[in-house]
């Protein structure tokens, strides 16, 4: 179970990579998060998280094309792996289980 655990920001990034499905690279991931969650994301935080996710085997990266706006630098595309999918579903299940338990907890006193 432990290897499936995700931090809060890790979870957001992983979900966003999933949402972008095939078009996930530094710029799009960041824009997506900033637009959806309206919070500012620094390139540094995002990149280190992506590396960490890659190291854990939740995403994998692939070399892509460059363009003029990037000064010709290549893109690095990220896609979610099967292991990564397992991790987000597991995280969702954990939370659901917790949510399910919540009313009982409130009802319990007396």
């Amino acid at each position: 179970m432990k290897e499936l655990q995700l931090g809060e920001f890790e979870e957001i990034v992983l979900l966003t990579v999933g949402i972008l499905h095939g078009n996930a690279y530094g710029v799009t991931i960041r824009n997506e998060i900033e637009n959806r969650l309206s919070r500012e994301v620094s390139v540094g935080a995002l990149q280190t998280t992506l590396r960490r996710l890659e190291k854990k085997g939740f995403v994998k990266s692939a070399h892509g094309e460059g363009n003029q706006a990037r000064g010709g630098r290549p893109k690095l595309y990220f896609t979610i792996t099967a292991h990564g999918q397992k991790a987000i579903s597991s995280s969702r299940e954990t939370r659901n289980a917790l949510w399910d338990a919540l009313p009982q907890l409130i009802a319990k006193p007396e």
Binding site: R30, V43, A69, R73
Partner: peptide, 11 residues
């Protein structure tokens, strides 16, 4: 370096 610099420039 190349990927990050690309991202930065695009941003």
């Amino acid at each position: 370096h190349p990927y990050l610099e690309g991202d930065l420039l695009e941003h």
